[in-house]
Computed example of a mutant assay.
Amino acid sequence: MKTCLWVGTYTCDVESGERRGTDGQGIYAFEFDDETQRARLCSIYEGCRNPSFLAVSGNMLYAVSEMAEGGCVTALRYDAGQGRFTYVNEMPIPGSAACHVLIWKEKNCLVITNYLSGSMVNHALLPDGSIGARNGFFQYEGRGEDPVRQEGPHAHSSILSPDGKTLFVADLGTDRLYHYRWDEASQGPVPCEACPETYVGPGEGPRHMCFSPDGRYLYLVTELKGNVFCYQYSSEDGHLTFVQKVPSLPASYTGFNLAADIHLSSDGRYLYVSERGADIISVFQVDRETGLLGTCRFQLCGGKSPRNFCLSPCGRYIVAANQDSGNLVIFRRNAQDGLLGEVVEEIRIPSPVCARMADRDSLP
């Protein structure tokens, strides 16, 4: 089996726009062969500045350009046979430092979050995959406990509930999750009437989220305090009920750390969190019935600052994008105990910050 692997990188400084000698060139496209366990570089798309987050739907990729000024979201079509990108179109993003993009497929909507300006933007997706007109903009207000990192709102990511009904936006600066539902009249998201937001806790810094496969539980990792929260999700009104909070780091670790990404295995048995500073992947056992997190084990990520990671579609591999060490590490994954096994491939890439995978045969 062959898998497409796309990697977004930082190409320049977010604030100044100046290039650095060690930074990436754009979006890297690889083909990973499950039999040989080797990745082959197919192409590099250099038309995006700081493509720090990617969303994939079929053969369409959407990349945000994380810039303090002049950011945009770009639509690309990928030809798996040729290993090449084709530019489709792009749209400017109101706000500053777009850091996440999500596809609300059922509603043909693109959801973008801006970190520096603390806002969420929506664009229509057209039938050919191109990005259409803006159909929503939400500016957040407030601040948090940390005077440096939470001096204002900092929207960091969004996620859609598996039932397709509720959109959640995590704001690191205000320690809140904002809840939205689709409004047919305006053809865009609007705040949930019954439960417009969830307060996470002072100084936590909500960052990324994932859902259990059955859609009953939402898991959140907080960047600043390094905790994992479990909430029970109500499909009826979008309400989140607190279930559990557990630390994502070893009790003995006292150094600098910023928690980053979070994912569940497809069977819902294991939850993974990446830690920048400790430079580990935390592996939790999950009780699929109660949603509770149990035993946690900690494994080295193979580099420095694992900003983002992904599980392969087959579930046999985990790919870690280690930003500060400039390497992409592909681990074999043990489905029985959830642990990372041997490194089967290591690829040198300047400033890798996002990794996405898809079965090559599933692409149009």
Score class of each variant (00 low, 15 high):
132 G>I: 00
114 N>I: 02
224 L>Q: 00
246 V>T: 10
48 C>Q: 06
89 N>W: 00
219 Y>Q: 04
107 K>M: 12
245 K>D: 01
286 V>N: 05
123 H>T: 04
156 H>R: 07
304 K>Q: 03
48 C>V: 13
362 S>K: 15
118 G>C: 00
105 K>D: 12
52 S>D: 07
213 P>L: 08
52 S>K: 11
91 M>N: 05
67 M>L: 12
4 C>F: 03
130 S>H: 03
240 L>I: 02
172 L>Y: 14
241 T>S: 14
49 R>Q: 00
102 L>E: 00
343 V>E: 15
6 W>V: 09
251 A>M: 07
42 C>P: 05
163 D>R: 12
362 S>T: 14
310 C>I: 02
174 T>G: 02
257 N>D: 12
104 W>N: 14
134 R>K: 08
57 S>N: 10
56 V>T: 07
271 L>R: 02
54 L>K: 07
267 D>S: 03
175 D>H: 06
6 W>S: 09
202 P>W: 04
92 P>S: 12
269 R>D: 01
362 S>A: 14
354 C>Y: 07
22 T>K: 14
245 K>W: 01
200 V>A: 06
333 R>H: 08
10 Y>N: 05
55 A>N: 12
283 V>G: 03
281 I>M: 11
177 L>A: 03
242 F>N: 01
133 A>G: 14
237 D>T: 06
51 P>G: 00
292 L>R: 13
129 G>C: 04
194 A>Q: 05
280 I>T: 10
179 H>Y: 04
25 Q>H: 01
61 L>F: 09
23 D>E: 13
112 I>S: 08
119 S>W: 04
283 V>Q: 05
254 T>P: 00
7 V>C: 15
283 V>Y: 01
40 R>D: 12
194 A>N: 10
285 Q>T: 11
52 S>L: 06
183 D>F: 11
269 R>M: 08
159 I>E: 00
344 V>M: 13
250 P>C: 08
361 D>H: 06
85 F>I: 03
151 E>F: 06
351 S>F: 04
135 N>T: 07
230 C>A: 13
316 R>D: 14
328 L>N: 09
6 W>P: 01
149 R>Q: 11
279 D>T: 08
133 A>F: 10
79 D>L: 09
142 G>I: 11
342 E>L: 11
154 H>F: 05
304 K>P: 00
288 R>E: 09
56 V>W: 14
29 A>G: 02
348 R>V: 10
164 G>P: 14
213 P>K: 14
330 I>N: 15
232 Q>S: 12
358 A>N: 03
336 Q>F: 07
135 N>F: 10
231 Y>I: 10
99 C>A: 07
25 Q>L: 11
31 E>G: 04
4 C>L: 06
237 D>K: 05
343 V>H: 08
95 G>C: 03
86 T>F: 15
212 S>D: 02
228 V>D: 05
205 G>C: 12
302 G>P: 12
270 Y>T: 00
362 S>Y: 05
65 S>F: 03
108 N>A: 13
223 E>N: 09
184 E>V: 09
102 L>R: 01
162 P>C: 01
133 A>P: 13
64 V>F: 15
269 R>I: 04
272 Y>M: 05
345 E>P: 06
297 R>K: 09
166 T>V: 13
286 V>K: 02
330 I>Q: 04
150 Q>S: 09
234 S>L: 04
128 D>R: 11
277 G>M: 09
299 Q>G: 07
278 A>V: 01
283 V>D: 00
296 C>A: 13
67 M>N: 08
91 M>H: 10
